[in-house]
């Protein structure tokens, strides 16, 4: 029994990482409909931010906490720049956007190789994240790694902050208004171009946060973003495009399914099972878990 509980928690923490990565996409892909293939490289930028900060700041705890806002700003600025330079010129052309951002993704990976070298680099975890919390002791123990708990906490905090921003702030109202009816927003005096850039800044900044979290569970390398970005796109599609609640449910469902299947079979079989489950689910509900309900979409 404890084994399944422990696997489920592993799944939840995988889900938390997925959710952190998918949150940024829920804005740029979910809200704005832009398939940004360079999103994974913003994750990488966040991770390298931790690596860079650990140079001058030797205390791993301080550098990790400091990396959270710095990575958010670095990745956010990269996203806003990408939007301003390229994406805003391609809004009605999804295929071109995909190709162009893919090119940017390759360039950023090469840039990382040139600056940091091709091999993976490692960061040190702070002491207070290295232990495990014992929930059930004895012969069949249930323990949770503090680093995983930290990621879970970060994901929960990010979801809460994003929900509050979207629901309660003027910026959130403007972001939702522009997504729902661009012309009407512009006609209501909203500078829609600036709102697009800010949305991109927030979405990319969240990718930076995810990058910081990823340094706690794995190595940092030029292709780390690409490896994980497909899963994040899957979370958004399964969750229902544009629906934050759906993304939360989908991230944890996929994480738990993956972890439980890994325990009872092998990693590859678990992966195949999860992908088949997604294909089957989307056959049944192409619109995802949550959908928009309204009397009029005009």
């Amino acid at each position: 029994m404890t084994v399944y509980l422990s696997q489920s928690f592993t799944g939840i923490s995988i889900g938390a990482v997925l959710l952190l990565i998918a949150l940024g996409l829920s804005l740029t892909f979910g809200q704005m409909g832009v398939i940004n293939m360079a999103h994974g490289e913003f994750i990488m930028a966040g991770a390298y931010t931790v690596y860079m900060l650990q140079g001058p700041i030797s205390d791993a705890g301080v550098s990790l906490l400091l990396a959270l806002p710095v990575a958010f700003l670095v990745a956010g600025a990269m996203g806003a720049l990408l939007e301003w330079l390229l994406i805003r010129r391609l809004y009605a052309r999804p295929l071109d956007t995909l190709l162009v951002t893919w090119g940017v993704s390759l360039m950023l990976q090469q840039l990382a190789r040139d600056v940091f070298g091709a091999p993976n680099v490692h960061t040190s975890s702070p002491d207070w994240l290295s232990g495990r919390l014992t929930l059930i002791g004895g012969e069949d123990p249930l323990t949770l790694a503090y680093s995983r708990l930290f990621i879970l906490g970060l994901a929960v905090a990010a979801v809460a902050a994003l929900t509050l921003t979207l629901r309660r702030t003027p910026l959130g109202r403007r972001m939702r208004a522009v997504v729902q009816h661009r012309d009407l927003a512009e006609a209501s005096g909203i500078a829609t171009g600036r709102v697009d850039r800010l949305t991109f800044f927030l979405g990319s900044g969240l990718a930076g946060l995810a990058g910081v979290a990823l340094t706690l569970v794995g190595p940092i390398g030029p292709t780390m973003g690409t490896n994980i970005i497909i899963d994040a796109f899957l979370v958004i599609v399964v969750g229902g495009i544009g629906r934050l609640r759906g993304a939360v449910v989908a991230a944890f469902a996929l994480g738990v399914l993956q972890a439980v299947m890994e325990y009872s079979t092998t990693v590859s079989v678990a992966r195949v099972t999860v992908l088949i489950a997604i294909v089957a689910f989307l056959q049944w509900r192409p619109q995802g878990i949550h959908t928009l309900r309204t009397r009029s979409l005009a």
Binding site: R173, R176, H181, L184, E186, S188, G193, T294
Partner: peptide, 24 residues
């Protein structure tokens, strides 16, 4: 001028078909 700056100068627009931001 872009539309949102015209609105700031004192123009306002009620489009055809009772349009709103449906999810707000």
């Amino acid at each position: 001028l872009p539309a949102h700056r015209r609105v700031r100068r004192g123009l306002a627009y009620v489009p055809q078909g009772q349009q709103s931001f449906p999810q707000l």
